Simulated scan of single mutants.
Amino acid sequence: VFRIKFMRDLRLMVKGLIAGVRTLALAFVLLFAVLYVISGFAAMTIGNSEEVAKIGLDGFFYNIPASMYTAFRCFTGECTTNDGAPIHSLLADVFGLPFIACYVVSYMLVTMGIFNLILAVYVDITMKAAKENDAVTAEQYSRESIRIARTTRELLKKFSSAYHVFHEMEDSVKHSNTIDWMKASVFTEEGMDKIAITKELFLLIIQDRVVQKLMDDLDLPPDRANLFEIIDADGSGTLQITELLHGLLKIRGEINKSDAVATLLATRSVQTLITEMKADTNRKLDTLRSELVEQLTRLRKSSINRTLASSKVEEEKQKPPAPAVLELRLPCKPSACEEDPRIPVWPASPTSRMND
């Protein structure tokens, strides 16, 4: 029962109680000695008083055991008579200030001194037991970690050996559906990173009794036929040794709250990543859309300009040629032709030459 997790506090208290038995026994001896001295003094003084007998309190102090019981009751809060009257108040009325002073001193000594001392020592013993328990727990955890590491190593060696045997004697293994573990045991851990275990080989390996015992030692779930699909998270159809190792160590043991929280946090992280990718993709799409619209606008403008230019060229080609205009000019005198060289010069006559 004490090995259950929620019984850890009870186990710690029981262990602290057992560890503090000797201290508690010594504390009880000290308390008994103090009460014996106080009760002896009370029995000799209060028990022999006639005034105490008149008020009916002689039965509480007639001997040392009765005085010790009465003193213990007064120190623990039950200082009353059978009728419910407070004993210390009645005695204070009878004996006055001396009784009050002695009662206060003895009460402070026992209640504030011895009781608190016992409590402090007991708490100290319990804390020491808790520290020792933590040390033992850490040692047990270390031993458990070593045991798990060794068991996992043996299990991985079984998978590695079966992989080599299966590929060397594939035909015989398929027909017999068994693996010769005597031959498989000669293989070592070399080349484990190149091993890829298929589902058929996995189901064949877990049928072995030694493998089943190793899985039981690792506290793996009993539904082991479906472990391949659980461990093969990427859906590749094969298991690498590292993938198999991490999967087995994650599956072993009971389901804790941290497993569910880790899954929830991972899911939220993926959702956040997808949301960011979606926003980034939308921004890029908007940018590409705007650039595409600009390119289309430019292409349309250039296409329109080219169409207009080609239409103008076609119109120019289709127009008939303009008729040539013949410009006739009369011959002029040389003095007038100097102004316009295009006008032909009138030849001079002999008479004009003579006049000149």
Rank of each mutant, 00 (worst) to 15 (best):
L91E: 07
L91H: 01
S39N: 05
E50N: 09
C74P: 03
F32K: 01
L35V: 00
L12N: 03
I87Y: 11
F28K: 04
L24A: 08
G59K: 08
P86M: 02
K15R: 12
A43K: 06
D58V: 07
V34Y: 13
F32G: 01
I55C: 06
G56T: 09
M13T: 10
I87C: 12
G16K: 09
V29K: 03
A42I: 02
A42R: 13
V21W: 07
N63P: 01
A33V: 06
P65W: 04
M7C: 11
Y69L: 15
G16M: 12
M44H: 09
L91S: 09
Y62E: 10
T70P: 06
M68Q: 12
A33H: 01
T45Q: 04
G20Q: 10
K15A: 13
F61C: 09
V37H: 01
T76E: 08
N82Q: 09
L24V: 01
F41D: 12
L31S: 13
M44K: 05
V94L: 15
T80G: 00
S89H: 06
A85G: 02
A53P: 00
F28T: 04
C79V: 07
L26H: 14
L35K: 02
L10R: 03
L35G: 07
A25V: 05
L90N: 00
L17Y: 04
A25F: 03
L35A: 12
G40I: 02
A66G: 02
I18K: 03
S89T: 15
N82F: 08
M7E: 07
R11G: 15
A53T: 08
R8L: 11
L17D: 09
M44N: 08
G20C: 12
E78D: 05
R73Q: 14
V37N: 05
D83T: 15
M44G: 06
I55W: 06
S39E: 08
G84L: 15
V14K: 12
L57V: 02
L35C: 10
A71G: 03
K15M: 13
A71N: 13
F95Q: 15
I87M: 11
E51D: 14
N48K: 13
N48F: 00
K54T: 14
F75S: 09
A53W: 07
F28C: 04
L17W: 08
G20T: 11
G16Y: 12
N48L: 00
G16E: 03
F72D: 06
F32W: 05
D83H: 12
L12F: 01
M44F: 01
K54G: 06
M44I: 00
V37Y: 04
E51I: 05
G84H: 14
T76S: 14
Y36L: 15
A42L: 15
Y36H: 10
G47S: 04
T81N: 07
A71D: 01
T80C: 00
M68D: 11
